[in-house]
Design a protein around this nucleic acid. Structure first.
Length: 270
DNA sequence: AGTTGTACCTGTCTGC
DNA sequence: TGCAGACAGGTACAAC
């Protein structure tokens, strides 16, 4: 489900409920997520005040003095702040109880997500090899051009490589390539500096706009307060295979690229 | 080092 | 209506 805009929407929705609150208890109903939830989460968090709620790539970090809870939503994860008496459903794996009386609940039907622990002052191994944040100045066309030299993989797979740039998943890769006029099949190493400049600008504009819309709700994404995202109404190619291009009217092509469903316009994108 | 294929898991939708 | 099969927003890891 969640790419960067959905994770950022989640972060922004959680922060007002979590900042300055203390964790009063942890309930683990199903610790076998993608990786087992480490013992530090239940042992260390209770009694700690939440100092910050941050996002790095598609990870959320809930900071306390001794360390941070590191969360990834995988494909189907969701975080909500709920009244304490809310009965748990079958996929409600973890609750963090707060001194506000509310509960931060982690739900993930497919269990591709994770809840890990990062000691204060440490960087978790999962965060060490990540590329720059797409909305930062460190990410631009020059960065994409330099990183892509010698790479034969399709530019769409390159753009979704979290070591190249973080936060771009299947939806926003398709949309960004469309707006930059680049075929997702083109070898990453054969794209010019000028076109990578356009691609970087498209990534920034689309992610920023999706964040402003509260993310994309295709099936089940909801912000922590239960609101859907509205960016779906602004998708130009994702999920529209076989339909007419909104720019030129050509039938949108679809194929599997890098094991991911892909849609693009063969006329607008070269 | 880059690329490809596999694996993890459940819910939903499609077509027979 | 039932059921098998395809498919889904992610990413670590092994093998080449």
């Amino acid at each position: 489900m969640p790419e960067l805009p959905e994770v950022e929407t989640t972060r922004a929705g959680l922060a007002p409920h979590l900042l300055g609150r203390s964790v009063t208890g942890v309930t683990l109903r199903r610790p076998d997520l993608r990786w087992p939830i480490p013992a530090e989460v239940a042992e260390t968090l209770p009694g700690q005040r939440i100092l910050d709620v941050r996002r790095r790539a598609k990870y959320l970090l809930v900071d306390t003095a001794p360390g941070s809870a590191l969360l990834h939503l995988g494909m189907s994860g969701m975080l909500r702040v709920l009244p304490p008496e809310t009965p748990p459903g079958p996929h409600d794996h973890v609750d963090l109880r707060l001194d506000s009386g509310r509960v931060l609940r982690f739900t993930d039907p497919r269990r591709f997500g994770c809840l890990l622990w990062q000691p204060a002052g440490d960087t978790h191994p999962l965060l060490r090899e990540l590329g720059p944040e797409p909305l930062s100045d460190a990410f631009d066309g020059r960065h994409l051009f330099l990183r892509s030299r010698g790479r034969s993989a399709p530019v769409k797979a390159f753009l979704m490589d979290q070591a190249v740039v973080v936060g771009v998943g299947n939806i926003y890769a398709a949309e960004s390539l469309f707006h930059a006029g680049i075929s997702p099949l083109r070898a990453a190493g054969s794209v010019s500096p000028a076109r990578y400049g356009r691609l970087a600008e498209a990534v920034k504009a689309i992610l920023a706009r999706a964040i402003a819309r509260g993310g994309t709700t295709l099936r089940d994404f909801l912000s922590p307060d239960g609101a859907p995202g509205y960016f779906e109404q602004e998708l130009w190619v994702y999920g529209r295979g076989g339909e007419p291009c909104r720019t030129c009217g050509a039938r949108l092509r679809e194929a599997t690229i890098g094991q991911r469903a892909s849609v693009w316009c063969g006329r607008c994108q070269r």
